[in-house]
């Protein structure tokens, strides 16, 4: 806070001279920055690259729905299709447009378009595939974001900073999986039961799955993995001893639209 006018002008002038537009000047001028001592919680989980294996063989439809429900509950994801109050009921077309999905189920030919053979195994035909953000190692959404509101952490998580998002929806056009949702309406009235461990959202920002970064920081597995009763395995792809690597060694896995070069980090055992 201790900055008089002379100091302000000096820093502003110097930073202009040095061509420090934008961020540089903002940083120098930000008064009273707390050099906060913020440390990871002792139990927080670390990895070089997080990855998720979904064992569809073990995942029945009911469990899949439970996983999605668990995710949406702990992230205060609104439900526009079945709102908590009848007065908020929307017509189905509109509700579909507003829908916010972090984790949901889809048929094989929707989750893996173009990959279905003419006579798909009956079991697979009726399977509910859990789909979510793939946390691509080469994410197009991050490439297109004009403010770095969506960015890639060193541990591979494609993170969403909803404080910074300007709502241009370039990332939604960029994502080849339809994994991003936009807040077309105030979501709060449509949140069934407010979960205090996570914020809700305001209108006008994009959101998506973040591999439960807030739970990892507290040493907890992602909510869906916890609810999956062993059908999902989450861990470090770079760690040879991790369960993820063990599964990848043991089973043949497929990924969604891997030919696009996005290098998705969600693997499916079918």
């Amino acid at each position: 806070m201790g900055m008089d006018r002379r100091e302000f002008i000096r820093i502003a002038g110097l930073s202009t001279l040095l061509g420090l537009g934008g961020k540089g000047a903002f940083e120098l001028l930000a008064p009273g920055r707390v050099e906060a001592e913020i440390i990871p919680a002792p139990r927080s989980m670390k990895a070089k690259r997080w990855a998720l294996v979904i064992n569809q063989k073990k995942l029945d439809d009911a469990t899949a729905q439970k996983c999605a429900a668990a995710c949406h509950r702990v992230h205060n994801v609104p439900d526009f299709i079945n709102p908590p109050d009848d007065k908020l009921k929307l017509n189905p077309g509109v509700a579909n447009r507003y829908e916010i999905k972090w984790l949901w189920t889809a048929h094989f030919h929707n989750a893996f378009p173009g990959d279905a053979p003419p006579h798909l195994a009956e079991k697979v035909e009726h399977m509910s595939f859990l789909v979510l953000c793939n946390h691509c190692a080469n994410p197009p959404c991050v490439r297109v974001c004009p403010t770095k509101a969506t960015f890639q952490r060193e541990d591979g998580i494609v993170m969403m900073d909803m404080h910074r998002c300007i709502g241009c929806r370039f990332c939604m056009a960029g994502c080849p999986y339809g994994s991003r949702s936009f807040n077309w309406m105030d979501p709060r009235p449509y949140v069934k039961e407010q979960y205090p461990g996570y914020p809700t959202r305001e209108i006008g920002v994009v959101e998506k799955c973040t591999f439960c970064d807030e739970r990892l920081a507290q040493g907890l597995q992602p909510a869906c993995v916890e609810a999956s009763r062993g059908a999902m395995v989450f861990g470090d792809l770079e760690d040879e001893k991790s369960q993820v690597r063990e599964y990848l060694r043991k089973y043949f896995t497929i990924r969604r639209k891997a030919h696009l070069g996005t290098n998705p980090q969600v693997y499916y055992i079918v």
Partner: peptide, 10 residues
């Protein structure tokens, strides 16, 4: 970006 984000304020 660090691998594990800080959650605790000292």
């Amino acid at each position: 970006v660090t691998t594990s984000r800080g959650r605790n304020f000292v």
